[in-house]
């Protein structure tokens, strides 16, 4: 293994055995959740691991973090064989499961970090400065004394990320950390993870089913579909392959007569006698450009932006590839 390979998976596969029916007519079904994944991630990369629900993202993450045995193939994480060397590995990686809290429900964040630090056997001289850094970076000050169960989802997720970063891991794995998060928390997370990466060279692997969540954080996109690798390349390559056009819906006070749109923006249709516009725009165009073009003609009341769904991207990839 090359020494700068943080993750190295070769033909990594996982089947689940599902038993169905009663005791008598029991059937055994094999669900191939991940099929022959080849994936190399080098130190300092930020990889967005994308896939629709059920495509095999969490299965991959569990095998990388040593809590699931591969059915076939091999995997090395920071040089460790994850399952047999799980406890060694836990000291060098940080894992966030978006759906499952790793914090203590009844404790405030303030009391959580000494416990985690003890588990990692970090002396106060090491973890306290690090903690201060995380509190500042993830903006936790306002709710350090609130029991975790009373935190909003966004607050809790920032706490989860701080917990996973406390021991300064070389690799951070986040499994759908952005589901249900408000824009501000998402942006805060993105900024902080980006900073970790720039200042410490931390490698980041983030799964999501929402392309918009990872575009600005990750420079590499890996897409899996039904357990198989569908795409591995840069954001730009992905955009080129799929067109990756975003949708914007704008509600107006008055119809926008004589609207002139910038290049790369297409008016698909209008609704409510011209009071709602549905626009599609390409990667090179910013949402602000679209908005200002519309605002030049009418008062904007409301707007929403929709990223292309991962299913559409996959469909495009298969059609083109």
């Amino acid at each position: 293994m090359a020494s700068n390979h943080v993750v190295e998976a070769r033909g990594l596969s996982r089947d689940y055995i599902v038993h169905e029916g009663g005791l008598v007519r029991r059937t055994r079904r094999v669900v191939p959740a991940l099929v022959d994944l080849d994936l190399v991630i080098t130190a300092g990369e930020a990889v967005g691991y994308l896939g629709a629900n059920g495509s095999g993202k969490s299965t991959t993450i569990k095998m990388l973090s040593g809590i699931l045995v591969p059915t076939r193939g091999s995997v090395r994480v920071l040089g460790h064989d994850p399952v047999p060397e799980r406890r060694h590995l836990t000291r060098r990686i940080g894992v966030v499961f978006g759906q499952r809290s790793q914090l203590w429900w009844d404790l405030p964040l303030k009391e959580t970090y000494p416990i985690l630090a003890a588990m990692h056997r970090l002396p106060g001289s090491v973890w306290r400065p690090r903690w201060d850094e995380l509190v500042a970076g993830l903006e936790l000050e306002g709710f350090l004394d609130t029991p975790v169960r009373q935190l909003s989802l966004g607050q809790r997720m920032r706490g989860e990320v701080a917990a996973a970063l406390l021991h300064s891991p070389e690799l951070v794995i986040l499994d759908e950390p952005t589901i249900g998060l408000d824009m501000i928390s998402k942006e805060n997370l993105r900024r902080h993870l980006d900073e970790e990466r720039r200042t410490r060279g931390t490698t980041i692997l983030l799964t999501t089913h929402d392309l918009g969540d990872v575009q600005r954080l990750c420079d590499r996109m890996v897409i899996i579909d039904h357990g198989k690798l569908a795409f591995d390349g840069t954001e730009a390559q992905l955009a080129e392959l799929t067109g990756a056009r975003r949708m914007m819906t704008i509600d107006l006070d008055t119809p926008a007569d004589g609207l002139v749109l910038p290049r790369g923006v297409e008016l698909i249709d209008t609704e409510a006698d011209g009071l709602r516009l549905n626009l599609r725009f390409e990667r090179g165009v910013s949402a602000a450009q679209v908005l200002s073009a519309v605002q030049a003609r009418a008062e904007v009341r409301d707007l929403s932006i929709e990223e292309p769904a991962i299913e559409d991207l996959v469909r495009h990839i298969y059609r083109r590839g």
Partner: peptide, 9 residues
Amino acid sequence: EALLVRPTS
């Protein structure tokens, strides 16, 4: 799963 990604047994 959350317990298993910590270094303590």
